[in-house]
């Protein structure tokens, strides 16, 4: 086996493992949203209009995916200064998303929708909290990848790590869009 082939095999395995991890996260949210659906069908359901903060946070997380996409492209074309700017912008947008979600929960509570009230509200709190946990995990990993790739000299192996990180980030972004739309629909 040639040298690059073994590295490639390793890289492919890592990417494949990441996809499996995403599949299991997807199963977690499938379970939670199907419980949401079944419970909503049973009646006595308070439909919650999502506060404005959740709309803003949706825009913010989509923006962060876009900046991540261009950050990766900048790294691929060895434009490291642009990469640095974009990757840290992504990081800041990620923090902004978490803050906005927190403000969203406060706003819900201000309108009388409490965590321990009708399950219509409780589900939104719990599912969005579980999602935020995945964003926090993503931010920790993003911080590690960003620090490693910005303070070290340019390295083709970095691009692979950035690629894995980007896949996770886009997945968490997509997951939020799915949840956001899901919360807005009156199924029954």
């Amino acid at each position: 086996m040639t040298l690059s082939e073994e590295n490639k095999k390793q890289a492919n395995a890592q990417r494949f493992g990441l996809y499996l991890g995403l599949a299991s996260i997807a199963m977690l949210f499938t379970a939670l949203t199907s419980a949401f659906l079944v419970r909503q069908g049973a009646g006595n359901w308070l439909f919650v209009n999502l506060p404005i903060q959740f709309w803003i946070s949706t825009v913010v997380i989509i923006l962060s995916s876009i900046t991540f996409y261009y950050a990766k492209a900048a790294h691929a074309s060895a434009n490291i200064s642009q990469y640095r700017l974009l990757i840290w912008t992504t990081f800041i947008l990620g923090i902004a998303f978490i803050l906005l979600q927190y403000m969203g929960w406060l706003a819900m509570a201000n309108t009388g929708v409490y965590l321990d009230g009708n399950p219509g509200g409780s589900f939104i709190y719990v599912i969005s909290m579980v999602h935020v946990v995945h964003v926090v995990l993503g931010l920790v990993l993003l911080a590690i990848v960003s620090i490693r790739t910005t303070i070290k000299s340019h390295n083709p192996d970095h691009l692979h790590k950035i690629g894995l990180m980007a896949t996770y980030w886009h997945f968490v972004d997509f997951l939020w869009i799915y949840l956001f739309i899901f919360f807005q629909i009156k199924f029954f």
Partner: peptide, 17 residues
């Protein structure tokens, strides 16, 4: 895990899942 999360909230946070 999803079932357990909802159960933890019912036990500790007063939710009614």
């Amino acid at each position: 895990l999803g079932a357990a999360i909802l159960l933890m909230f019912d036990r500790s946070m007063g939710t009614s899942f």
